[in-house]
Write a protein that binds this DNA or RNA. Structure first.
Lengths: 127, 127
DNA sequence: CTATAATTTCGACAATTGTCGAAGTAGGGG
DNA sequence: CCCCTACTTCGACAATTGTCGAAATTATAG
């Protein structure tokens, strides 16, 4: 059983970030800090079956294939997605653990401080 | 009173991000996608009293004052921090609502695979 | 009013990034 | 075997970014 404790403030505000950690996180953040890559990530992650082939993605943009390929490579190099060739097509899927690292950085979910006095344990449904 | 439903997957995977939303979020993400700015944000957010003057920050970096000022401006323009002059010094503080938007994007808080049950409603105090 | 300290603005510059077109690679179908 | 489709790599180029030194701004102290 996994229990998660909700705290009041974003981890980033709970102590100064070490230089090395900051550098590492910045690589991850740079990868998602682009409108095209954000949409790619979102399209891949929300696609049926948890994966999307490049051919599912290019149509949504006004960009050439090499450019989409370039953005996908940046996401993959950062470790956010993984790609696999099956026959003619290449399929990409999200690596949730890595995406979650980003969320964990800023995410208190609680905007104000929780009502209840003590930390709350919350359980989640299966993926 | 605000109620938040915790779900299993990062919001970004729950549907393709609209073009406009992606553009808007990218601005925010670009602001934090830099090691210096990440550390600045973290130092400001974790500083006693919830605020830090520029003089508290510059010492931690091997950068000139204009460069630090430049990074602070980017964070401020993005809406992540706010600055106020009091006497000789300028004090910066985090704007939590905006930082939280970042967390909300990627954040399932649950790192390991979640356990049984249905989504849980958690209530927080109003701002 | 001048001197001094804290911070920002300005102008310049090298490095990085997003984009393209052309060419390369890999697989499937005649 | 040759061609067609899907995708990536390469090389080029304009735009953006991170950094600095010099100068401007704002406030306190003498």
């Amino acid at each position: 059983m996994t229990a998660v404790t909700i705290q009041c403030c974003a981890p980033i505000t709970r102590g100064p970030l070490a230089e090395g950690d900051a550098a590492e996180l910045a690589v991850l953040l740079k990868a998602v800090a682009d409108p095209v890559r954000l949409r790619l990530l979102s399209m891949i992650g929300s696609h049926a079956g948890g994966e999307a082939c490049v051919c599912d993605l290019t149509g949504a943009f006004d960009l050439t294939a090499p450019t989409i390929s370039h953005h996908l490579k940046i996401l993959r190099t950062a470790g956010l997605i993984d790609g696999e060739r099956r026959g003619t097509w290449v399929y990409y899927r999200i690596i949730p653990e890595v995406v979650n690292r980003l969320g964990a950085l800023f995410a208190p979910l609680a905007d104000p401080v929780p009502v209840v006095g003590e930390p709350v344990d919350v359980k989640f449904a299966d993926a």
